[in-house]
Design a protein around this nucleic acid. Sequence first.
DNA 1: ACGCTCTCCTGGCCGC
DNA 2: TGCGGCCAGGAGAGCG
Length: 271
Amino acid sequence: MPELPEVETVRRGLEPRVCGRRITRAVCRVAKLRLPLDPQLDALVRGQRIHAITRRAKYLLFGLDRGTLLLHLGMSGVLRLVDQDCPVVKHDHLDLHLDNRQLLRYNDTRRFGLLLYLQGEPLTHRLLSHLGPEPLGHDLAEDYLFIRSRNRKLAIKNFIMDQKVLVGVGNIYASEALFVAGIDPRRMAASLSRKEACTLLEAIQSILTEAIAAGGTTLKDFRQSDGKPGYFKQRLQVYGRKEQGCLRCGEPLRSLVLGQRSTFFCPQCQR
DNA sequence: ACGCTCTCCTGGCCGC
DNA sequence: TGCGGCCAGGAGAGCG
């Protein structure tokens, strides 16, 4: 399940090996992922060079000569660079052939991913235009969450997962960050003090940074195709640890559902 | 505007 | 062994 750190890791791994290559062919084996694939995709991208791979939130943007390929991995998407003769397996939905006998292959069991070819400025596309700031962006004020959370009555966990507020915090890291910050995930967003909100933003930033660093070491070769990111699992302090002892105080951790998402926390350490 | 629920999809797991 | 049912998860759509 790709979170922001994994998407960033994919980007960093592919960039030096793919930039400068020309797309010679696009092959789609399904009609749609989360959104329909453009039936003209092959004709649109064929012959174009990939100039850059950038990331916005959990989207990857492949900058081409005349447009942009926008890719979201959804929940189970895996993008790998493989040789041309690599056998096609189940859920290999899409190939972008390159001019060096390699291809970018997209596999997505659950098909929650998305691929669009955009002409014109990609950041103004409706999927990207409303997104909040990058959590690791340098221009983020330390009290940003405090300012934005005033008058917001939803649970703080749902608040930090809201893309319009802040991008990149998925269900797992939301629980983790709230544990690190010592904040009960059920609390109304507006109830946070300035200090608590600053602490929470710091926790989000340090967790994402650490996860990127961990992903950079274990996922760098892109050969794992099962989608199971073993790298962060051992680092998780609360997620998936219901009824196990809190690493800080030893009390059993609890779980509940917030906004249709499983949530883990320590009732002792998080207030 | 806000906050909540539903939905897309498949595989893994549970209990019977 | 088979099968039904439930759950996971990103995030837009749609509702009140």
